[in-house]
Write a protein that binds this DNA or RNA. Structure first.
Length: 572
RNA sequence: CGGGGAGUGGCGCAGUUUGGUCAGCGCGCGUGCCUUGGGAGCACGAGGUCGGCGGUUCAAAUCCGCUCUCCCCGACCA
C-alpha cells in the first residue's frame, strides 16, 4: 500500500471528546470516527487490526473445537420473554417494531437465540458436546458510553456457547475456553490476569474475567502478592478478622455530644480515636425495605456483596428524608444501637470491634463504649466490605495488591438456566430428557484493540505488537523526489511485498518530519528510512517502533533482513 | 436517571459577563514559489444558517424560553 493512497486521516491535535489514551490515539492516527455516542466507524487501519484480532480468536476457538457461525442481529421479542429478560434488560436493550407492530430487539447477546436453536435441533446426547461461536456486532444501549471503543453501544464481540450433557462436560468446555483465552490475549501482546468475578444477573456457578491491567480500566481488581488468588474488587473476599482475644471489659455505653461531626474523619478527630474503632452505618433501601449496613470506620462497603446477601433486586442508598424517618436523626449520626424496624447487616470486622464508637441516632451525638452483642444485634454477619490493597489474602494471608483493569473477556458457566427456561433438552442414554448444560464465553474485539493500545503506546503514538499491527513495515524515503532514494524505496517496497510482508511505502511529497510523525503515530512496528546519510554507504536504516532495533543495513540485504525480523516476531 | 460542563469553518479554541467595526486566531485544506533527516517559510485563496426552534430588540454568537447533541462524575457490562 502506498501512503498516498491509504486512507488514514491523521490529526495533529487531539479531539476534545477523547479522554483516554487509546481513544485519543485511535482518533488521531485515523483509525476510527464517531457516528453517534458509543457508535463508531472503523476506518481501514482499524479494520485491519480488528480482522487480525478476530483471526487470532478464530484460530484459538477452532483449536478447541469451536465452530463459527453467524446469528441475526435482529431478534424476536418472544424468546426474550420466555427467559424473562425482555423485561429485565429494560432500557439497556435497543428495541424496534416491524411494520406489523411485532416487537424485536437488536441483540445485546445471543443466549436466547442459540438456546432456542438447540431446543429445535438437538435431540440426543450423541449430538453433544457442541461449541458454537460467532464474531458479530452486539447492541447495548449503555447509559453512559465511554472511552471510545472501550464501552460502546455497538461493539464487536466474539461469543461462544458450549452445550454439554453434564457438569463434567461443562468443566471441560470451560477449561478449554479458559486456556484459549490465555493464548489469545498473549498472542495479542496483552498482559492479562484472570480474576474471579461477580456473576451478576446472568447467574451461573463459576466465572472469570480476563483483565488487562491498565490505568484506564473501569474495574478494580485485587490480586495476591504471594499466591494466585485474584478477583474483581466487587467480588473479592476479605480474610476474616482474627479471633478476638479474651474480651476486655467494656464500660457501659455512653452518649457524647459530637456537634456537626458527620463523617468518620470528623468524629475520629473530635473524639481522638482511630477510624478503625468507629462503626460506619449506611442506610439502604433494598427492594423498598430499609436496611442498615455496618462496616468498620476505615472500611468501604461493597454494594455488590450486600445486594447478593440480601437477595435484593434493587439496592440504593436511602434518601436523607428516609434516614431521618428510620433513625430519627439526620444523615451522619446513624448507628446500629437501638435501630428498630431495620434489617441490620454487619461486616465481621465491624462486629469484631469490642469498644466502638457509633452514631447515636440522635442529632449531634455519638455513642462510645459500644459493644457488639451487648448493645446491638445484627440480623446477618456477613462479608460486605470492599477489599483494600494491603489486606490479607483470603487464601494464603499474604497482602493483596490492587490495580485497575479492562475486562476484555469473560467466561461463564451458565448451567441450565437458559436451557430450562427455553426447554432445550436432550435424550440421555437412560432415555430421560435432560436440560443441556451450557457455558458462555465472550471477548470484546474492539475493546481488545483499545486495551492493546493502552498497554502499547508512548508519547509519539501507538506501538503495535507485530501480531496485530495494521501493517508490519513502513518504508520512508526522506525525500521522495530524490531519484536515488525513490529508486531504493520502490525496490524495497516491491521486494518486501513479494516476500509477503505487509508494507506501506510513504510516497508522499511531505517533509521527513511529517512522515516520521505519522509513522510513529500509526505505530508501524518497523520503519525503513532511506536518506542521504546511509545511502552514501549504499545502506538504509532499519528501526523498530519499540526502540529495540536500530541498524544500518546494506540496500541489497535490507528486504531479507526486515522480512526475517517480521517472521521472527510473528512466530514468537 | 441524578449531578457538572460544552456546542462558533475539518480539528483545537477566543469572543458571550457589558447586545451595535466580532465573524476572529492557530492548525489543517487549495494554488504558486521555495524547501526536504522529526509536523519548514512566503504569497494568494476557499471554507462558518455561531447546534436547532421560538421570543425580546431598531439591532442577537451575545439577553429570555423550549429543544437536540456531545463530554465529564455516580448505579451496569465484552
Amino acid at each position: 500500500m502506498r501512503m498516498s493512497q491509504l486512507w488514514a486521516p491523521t490529526l495533529r491535535e487531539t479531539p476534545s471528546e477523547a479522554e483516554v489514551i487509546s481513544h485519543q490515539l485511535m482518533l488521531r492516527a485515523g483509525f476510527i470516527r464517531r457516528a453517534a455516542a458509543g457508535i463508531y466507524t472503523y476506518l481501514p487501519l482499524a479494520w485491519r487490526v480488528l480482522r487480525k484480532i478476530e483471526q487470532i480468536v478464530r484460530e484459538e476457538m477452532d483449536a478447541k473445537g469451536g465452530q463459527e457461525m453467524l446469528m441475526p442481529v435482529v431478534q424476536p421479542a418472544e424468546l426474550w420473554q420466555e427467559t424473562g429478560r425482555w423485561d429485565e434488560y429494560g432500557d439497556y436493550m435497543f428495541r424496534l417494531k416491524d411494520r406489523h407492530g411485532r416487537d424485536f430487539c437488536l441483540g445485546p447477546t445471543h443466549e436466547e437465540l442459540i438456546t432456542a436453536l438447540m431446543r429445535a435441533e438437538v435431540r440426543s446426547y450423541r449430538q453433544l458436546p457442541l461449541r458454537l461461536y460467532q464474531i458479530a456486532n452486539k447492541y447495548r444501549d449503555e447509559p453512559r458510553p465511554r472511552f471510545g471503543l472501550m464501552r460502546g453501544r455497538e461493539f464487536i464481540m466474539k461469543d461462544l456457547y458450549s452445550f454439554d450433557r453434564d457438569e463434567e462436560g461443562l468443566d471441560v468446555s470451560y477449561r478449554y475456553m479458559y486456556e484459549a483465552y490465555e493464548r489469545i490475549f498473549a498472542r495479542c501482546g496483552l498482559t492479562t490476569r484472570a480474576v474471579e468475578a461477580d456473576p451478576g444477573e446472568i447467574g451461573g456457578t463459576a466465572n472469570h474475567e480476563f483483565m488487562v491491567l491498565a490505568d484506564a480500566g473501569e474495574d478494580e481488581v485485587v490480586y495476591c502478592t504471594a499466591c494466585d488468588y485474584a478477583a474483581n474488587t466487587e467480588k473479592a473476599e476479605s480474610a476474616p478478622p482474627p479471633a478476638p482475644a479474651a474480651r476486655a471489659e467494656t464500660p457501659p455505653a455512653e452518649q457524647v455530644a459530637t456537634p456537626g461531626a458527620r463523617t468518620i474523619d470528623e468524629v475520629a478527630r473530635l473524639l481522638g480515636v482511630e477510624p478503625a474503632r468507629l462503626l460506619k452505618t449506611l442506610l439502604y433501601e433494598a427492594d423498598g425495605q430499609p436496611v442498615a449496613a455496618v462496616v468498620r470506620g476505615d472500611h468501604e462497603l461493597n454494594e455488590v456483596k450486600l445486594k447478593r446477601i440480601l437477595g435484593a433486586k434493587t439496592l440504593e442508598m436511602a434518601s436523607a428524608e428516609r434516614i431521618q424517618s428510620v433513625t430519627g436523626a439526620p444523615v451522619g449520626f446513624s448507628g446500629p444501637v437501638g435501630l428498630k424496624g431495620v434489617r441490620i447487616v454487619a461486616d465481621p470486622w465491624a462486629w469484631a470491634v469490642a469498644d466502638a464508637v457509633a452514631g447515636a441516632n440522635a442529632a449531634d451525638a455519638h455513642l462510645i463504649h459500644v459493644q457488639p452483642g451487648r448493645d446491638w444485634q445484627a440480623d446477618d454477619i456477613a462479608d460486605i466490605r470492599t477489599v483494600q490493597a494491603g489486606d490479607a489474602c483470603v487464601r494464603c494471608g499474604a497482602p493483596v495488591a490492587a490495580a485497575r483493569g479492562i475486562e476484555v473477556g469473560h467466561v461463564f458457566k451458565l448451567g441450565t438456566r437458559y436451557s430450562e427456561a427455553l426447554g432445550a433438552t436432550y435424550l440421555d442414554e437412560d432415555g430421560k430428557a435432560k436440560p443441556i448444560v451450557m457455558g458462555s464465553y465472550g471477548i470484546g474485539i474492539g475493546r481488545t484493540m483499545a486495551a492493546i493500545i493502552e498497554q502499547h503506546h508512548d508519547e509519539r503514538g501507538i506501538r503495535w505488537p507485530a501480531s496485530v499491527a495494521p501493517y508490519h513495515v513502513i518504508v520512508v524515503p526522506v525525500n521522495y523526489e530524490d531519484q536515488r532514494q525513490r529508486q531504493v524505496a520502490e525496490r524495497l517496497y516491491e521486494e518486501l511485498s513479494a516476500a509477503g510482508v505487509e508494507v506501506v511505502l510513504d510516497d508522499r511529497l511531505e517533509r521527513a518530519g511529517v512522515k516520521f510523525n505519522d509513522a510513529d503515530l500509526i505505530g508501524f512496528p518497523w520503519r525503513i528510512t532511506i536518506g542521504p546519510r546511509a545511502l552514501a554507504e549504499d545502506a538504509v536504516e532499519v528501526t523498530s517502533r519499540d526502540g529495540s532495533l536500530q541498524e544500518r543495513v546494506p540496500v541489497e540485504e535490507a528486504a531479507a533482513f526486515v522480512r526475517e525480523q517480521v517472521r521472527a516476531a510473528l512466530s514468537a
